[in-house]
């Protein structure tokens, strides 16, 4: 961390992480204005647009930056929307990241971004309903509400996957040398 090149790369990394947090946060807020439940009658459904930022980070940045992206976005979103939304976003976001990170090595031959994004959406929904069940003290919610969310999640997962493809195609990662790479 002593040479000017190192510190320039570190600055670039911090700036890019901050930018991604801002983009993810704006997407999370904007999607709350989209009355998706008018189109699909399942209360509380969201497009999950912030997943586009997560997908970008997952394929272009170190894992630590992606984890931080999800954590910071959830905390800031919670400051705006309240503690319950924050718990949903935190649990769902981290589970989605875990699922997509585990599937990432299969990307290319076996899986496309559509499949990875669908799995992320399903993991997100599962985490959300699990938190809701715990908070309400009622596991029945899992079998009543989760199937509907999972069904919708197939569609929204494909949509966010499709949205991430041009983003990944057009935006390169920061150029080397990276201080975080050997």
């Amino acid at each position: 961390m002593s040479s000017p090149a190192d510190s320039r790369a570190a600055t670039r990394r911090i700036a890019l992480d901050g930018l991604l947090v801002a983009v993810a946060l704006v997407l999370s807020i904007v999607e709350r204005w989209i009355p998706l439940e008018l189109l699909v009658p399942v209360p509380g459904i969201k497009l999950g647009l912030a997943n586009v930022a997560t997908l970008f980070a997952l394929f272009r940045l170190p894992l630590m930056d992606t984890v931080l992206l999800v954590l910071v976005r959830s905390l800031l979103l919670g400051a705006i929307t309240g503690p319950t939304s924050m718990l949903f976003s935190l649990t769902g976001g981290l589970l989605a990241l875990l699922a997509m990170r585990l599937l990432r090595p299969l990307h290319g031959r076996v899986l496309s971004l559509y499949g990875i994004s669908m799995a992320g959406a399903a993991a997100h929904n599962t985490g959300q309903v699990a938190v809701a069940s715990l908070l309400l003290g009622n596991a029945g919610l899992l079998s009543v509400y989760l199937p509907m969310l999972l069904l919708v999640g197939i569609g929204t997962g494909i949509l966010t996957g499709a949205a991430a493809i041009p983003v990944l195609r057009r935006l390169r990662a920061p150029q080397p040398p990276f201080p975080w790479e050997p």
Binding site: S112, Y114, G115, I116, A119, I165, L168, R169
Partner: peptide, 12 residues
């Protein structure tokens, strides 16, 4: 990143 669906997507 020229994406087309793969068979694994169907498994998911």
């Amino acid at each position: 990143v020229s994406e087309r669906p793969r068979f694994g997507d169907a498994l998911v």
